[in-house]
Structure formats: structure tokens, C-alpha cells
Design a protein around this nucleic acid. Structure first.
Lengths: 342, 342
DNA sequence: AGTTAGCACTCTAACAGCGAGAGTGCTAAA
DNA sequence: TTTAGCACTCTCGCTGTTAGAGTGCTAACT
């Protein structure tokens, strides 16, 4: 639906004013604020119409108007002037991310913190998932006579480790056998190829050594699963507590902590244009229906591999947050790409 | 101060009742609940006296009594019957922790989750800090022609990694030189010995290779700092939102997130008996003065190295939480000890 | 001397009533 | 089509009232 220019101006002004103050906007307030060359009565008429069309809500008769979900949607899709980050700010952020440590998790953690500070929202992100990722390197570091730490690095840069305990003594021969098996059967394989079945057949084929080495292989398989699993990182949850809009922040925070729903949402809902904006009831999950979720996928080596998302009340500054998020996903993607392929 | 037996019974009953219900306890309620062989009038007299002595507070004249800070203190020190975890529960927890992955952070994360579920409190823990920890192993994994991932394992089992970018190409010779330097100058050294000065003199002594190798040495030094730094882990913060006692949970959650204050508190305040209990205003930090903090140090190899702590309102079930925390610290310590020295 | 019944007293929480203020929708005039 | 004006509605904050919970005190009882 296309609104008249004047209606658009009024809607935009209401959205922006409400985002800024959190108070319902009345016709008089709007008049001073928006400097339209009309009287408050005209604005009242237009507002009444916008209400009838479903773009505005009214908490009660004698209150001003607040944007409805549809109002926000129209604003985001057609009215909003994106507000880009100043260039110095961008440089600053870039420096912070470059300094994060270089691993995907570290970069995302830092990006999450930056975004949380910048936006006062909760920030979620998923670690890169790459269907073509393969095991790149496995190290076994003996810690004692029967324990060792195993470290696995995947081609997507994910590093995972576990401590492993063996029944028989961890001597040089055993370690060497392990490394042989690894380089022969695991390096270059994807995690999904490391099945229990493979582990079992391998163990069997080793005969007498089987018993000694199988704990190592089991750990190896665990690690392969871990490197493949997408992880959800969370930053700035406490920001949500500053919004009076959330009477029960607990439910939302528990939802975020659970992780899988969001991970699924992100992987199912590929970025169509650049940034996805889900407002209020547009969200599938009940726990998010009082919130807006803005998310965008970052791409490593030209391929979408994970996402960053912002969560706040529907009353957030879309014009500022969307470009910020977009910038962060771009820079995260480019830093990760740099690290992995040069 | 020693209270009469009857006063103690009444105080204990009030504390327990208030912990259970969160409502001020009146003389009549107490009568049904505690089954003392006296009338409500007598209880009233005793309660008045306990108020005068400072063990009870009264929100207002016509409300019941609630324990004062002193009341909780007396209860914790002398009245409380510790409520041990049932043995099956202990076994279950043990299994969960053994399965966590073996690294200190992984064990602590799991322990934190378990405790958060068990207690409905926020759980904090510090990673083991060991003044005698030394660098055990360093691995350099090339990722591209100019980037590599460096992984460092300390003798206390801490694993840290960073991605490092070099100006000149990462060829085999460079890598070999790096490993030589590492094994000669760094393995077996403590992190504090890895000073900037050392890095600089080393770089200088290498002459022509100096420029190529110095980014690697800088990263090495960064990693050494990281492995040495105590980290604060946080679980179950959202539990705090379930207590009506916290009008501004935001402040507390930000305090927990900041980390250093608690890290300092733990390291400064060594475990005297077995478990420390700081109630309300007994806490040094303003942000904790509406809360109780229970913490206890775990020991790895017979030496205190980190701590686990619970944070909740002063109105928490000390009798149940203290033994739970104590058990968790013991098991965390024993699992970590097992891993590192066998 | 300690305990108890009884009672007057105090304070809160909940509810109703009221007025001020904000903002609307409608009407009639420009 | 716009605007001034006005009656109307609804919230918010204040006040007053009442019911109920709980106390502290006194006087009687064991």
C-alpha cells in the first residue's frame, strides 16, 4: 500500500519520535517536532486515518499514537534514512576486531561486544558452518602417563580440544600409531564422514592395539562433531534489562541461552537482500514476539557461513542499527576470509 | 553472643520460613509452622527481644519479622543443618563433569551450569591460576602463506590460541627457526618470564631473520600473557531475574560481567575454613550488598588455584547451597588434578 | 518468674472517588 | 481542504476509607 507523501512524513515522524522518547506521540507534540506546514487538527485527521489503515496503535483514547507493527514495517521498508557509521568509528572497530585473536569465535566475541556497546541490544552470532570443512590437523599432547590433550583444527579455522584418558600407558608407539591412523584416515575428511562405524572398523582392524587406541579414536570422533556443530555466541544480554518494555526479560534471556532455535532460524532464513528485519509478531518464536530481530549473514570466502543478529524491543533505532549490523557482518566476513585464504 | 535455646529455635524457624516463602513471618504463622510448645504471645515476646538484639528486622510495625544480616550470620554459623546432596545426585554430577572435555575452562563451564541448575543462583568461577605454571608446548599451524595459528598449552592445562600474520612468507625455514627459539627459550618458562625485553633481545640477536620472525614472537608473548591471566566464567545469570528481590538486576549483572572485581575478591580472600559466606553488607562491593556471595576455592594438586562462587539474594537456602557448592569445588579440583598429574 | 489471653493500636494493601491534564474526534466556519 | 474550537474520554496521581495482619502491653494465671 502506498501512502500519500504527507501521511508518510507523519508516520516517519511518529516512528522516530517514539523511538527516541518511548512515549506515545500526540498531534501537538508532533507539530512542534516535525515542522509540517499544517495545524494540529490536520495532523489529527491524518493520524486517525493512519490508525484506520493499521499503521498506528493507540494505547488508550486519550494517549498519543505509537507505531503498530505494520507502521514499523512501512518505515523500515520505505521511509527510513539509513544512518551510516562515521568513518573514524569504522576504523576503530576494524582495529578492535583485527586484534581479537584471529579465530572465528574470538572475532565473533569481539564483534558481539562492539555491537552490544554500539546498539544497546543483545547480540547473537553463529560460528561459521561450512559443509565443505575438513579436518586440517590433529595434535595429541601427552599430559601424564594415561592422559593427553587432543586438539583439532578444521579448515574453517575452528579449534577444539578435549582431554582424553587411555586405559593403557601412552607410550611413543601408541602415539605414533595414532598419528598414522589420523593422517591416513582423517586428515582432509569432513566431520560427517567420521562416523561411529568408521571408528569401529578402524579399531577392529588394529587387532591387539585396538583396546589401547580406541579411547583416542572416540575422542577424535567427539572432536569432529564439535568442530562441525554451529555454536551460538551471546553478548550484551544485560542490555535488555534497560528497556522498560520487557516485563519478563527472564523468558527472553533463557530463550537466547538455549541457542538452537536461533541457530535454526538463521540457517533456515538465508539473507535475501542484505539484512533481515523481523518485527514483533513477524517472529515465529513466541519468545521473540515482543522484540525485533535484525540479522545478517557474513560470508567467508564468498560463501554465507554464519550470521550476526541484534535483539531489542520493537522500539529500536532501525535507521542506525541496520547499517551498524551490516557493517559488522561485512568486516567480520572479510577478516575471517583474510585469515583463512591468502 | 549466645542466645537461649528457645531463641535459637525461633530464629532458625524464622530464617527457614522466610527463605522458603519470602514473606515476613508473624508470631501466629511461626506457631503453626514450628510446633514449639508455647503460645503466640510468648513467641511475640521472644521476637521482640530478638529484634532488640539485632537479629530480626521488621519492614513495618504491622508486618512479621525477617532475618537481619546478623540473623542470617548467626543462622549460618551456628544453627543451620547442612543438607547434603543425595549420593545418586553426586554420581550424576560427577559423570557430567567427567564428560565436559577435560580442559579447566570446559570443566568449570559444566560445573557452573550444574550449579546454576541446582541452586537457581548466578555462578561465577575463576580459571586455575598457578604461579608455577610454565609453557608446556607451542604449536604453529600454517593457515596460508602469511598466516598461522599459534597454540599454547601451559602446564596447568590451559590452552590458548591466536592467529598470527607475518610480513614475509611463512616458509619451512622460518617455522623451524621459530620452533628452535621456542624450545630453547620458552618451553619450561613461566609466563611472567616472557617479558617484552626478552622478546626484543631475542629478535635482535637473530639479525636478518629478525624482521620476519618478530610477529611470531609478539604473538607468543601475547599468548603467554593470556595463559597466565585468570579468567572469570559466568553461568546462570538469568536466574537472578527470577527473584523479586532485585529491582535493578542490570547493575548486578554488569558487575558480574566486568569480572575483575570478583577475580580480585577471590584471590585476596583465601578460603579460611571450607566455604566463605558473605551476607549483604558484609560484601565490600556496593553492587553485592543486596546479595549473598558464597564461594570456595578448589585445589589442584593440593594447591588452591581457583574458586567457584554463588550469587543470589540474601534470602537463599544456605543449608542446601553451601554443601552443594562445597561438593562441586571438591569434584572440580579432583577432576582437574586427575587430568594433570597421573 | 515465666507464660498466656485479651485488647487496643499501628501500619499496609486494596479500593473507590475525584480532579487535572493530555489528547482525541467532531462540527462548523474559513 | 484546512482549521479553530469544544465537548468528551481516559489515565494518572492524590486522598480517604476499610479490612486485615501483626504487634506490644497489661493483667491474670500457673
Amino acid at each position: 500500500m502506498q501512502l500519500s507523501e504527507r501521511k508518510e512524513k507523519i508516520l516517519a515522524a511518529i516512528v522516530e519520535r517514539y523511538i527516541a522518547t518511548g512515549e506515545p506521540v500526540g498531534s501537538k507534540t508532533l507539530l512542534e517536532f516535525s515542522s509540517l506546514p499544517v495545524s494540529s487538527a490536520t495532523i489529527r485527521n491524518e493520524m486517525a486515518e493512519l490508525s484506520r489503515l493499521g499503521f498506528l496503535d493507540q494505547p488508550h483514547t486519550s494517549a498519543g499514537r505509537i507505531p503498530s507493527q505494520l507502521g514499523y514495517r512501512y518505515y523500515v521498508d520505505r521511509l527510513m534514512n539509513r544512518y551510516e557509521l562515521p568513518i573514524q568509528e569504522k576504523r576503530l572497530i576494524e582495529a578492535r576486531l583485527s586484534d581479537a585473536g584471529g579465530e572465528p569465535q574470538q572475532i565473533l566475541e569481539q564483534a558481539g561486544q562492539v555491537l552490544a556497546e554500539l546498539t544497546n541490544c543483545a547480540v547473537v552470532s553463529t560460528t561459521p558452518s561450512d559443509d565443505n570443512a575438513v579436518i586440517r590437523r590433529v595434535e595429541l599432547v601427552p599430559l601424564g602417563t594415561h592422559t593427553a590433550m587432543m586438539v583439532m583444527l578444521s579448515s574453517s579455522g575452528i579449534l577444539k580440544s578435549r582431554v582424553c584418558r587411555t586405559d593403557s600407558e601412552l607410550n611413543l608407539e601408541l602415539i605414533e600409531t595414532f598419528y598414522n591412523i589420523v593422517s591416513k584416515h582423517f586428515i582432509g575428511k569432513s566431520a560427517s564422514e567420521v562416523s561411529i562405524a568408521l571408528i569401529q572398523t578402524l579399531a577392529l582392524s588394529l587387532g591387539s592395539k585396538s583396546l589401547a587406541i580406541s579411547p583416542l579414536l572416540v575422542t577424535l570422533s567427539d572432536l569432529a562433531q564439535l568442530t562441525e556443530q554451529t555454536q551460538l555466541l551471546l553478548e550484551g544480554q544485560s542490555n535488555l534489562l534497560n528497556y522498560t518494555d520487557y516485563p519478563n526479560a527472564y523468558e527472553l534471556m533463557e530463550f537466547l541461552r538455549r541457542g538452537e532455535p536461533l541457530t535454526n532460524l538463521f540457517s533456515g532464513h538465508k539473507t535475501e537482500n542484505d539484512t533481515n528485519v523481523l518485527i514483533g509478531k513477524e517472529n515465529f518464536y513466541r519468545e521473540l514476539q515482543d522484540s525485533s530481530l535484525i540479522f545478517s549473514h557474513y560470508s567467508v570466502g564468498g560463501k554465507d557461513s554464519g550470521a550476526l543478529g541484534l535483539i531489542g524491543p520493537t522500539r529500536i533505532d532501525y535507521a542506525r542499527l541496520i547499517p551498524s549490523l551490516k557493517y559488522l557482518t561485512e568486516i567480520v566476513g572479510s577478516i575471517m576470509s583474510d585469515t583463512l585464504e591468502d
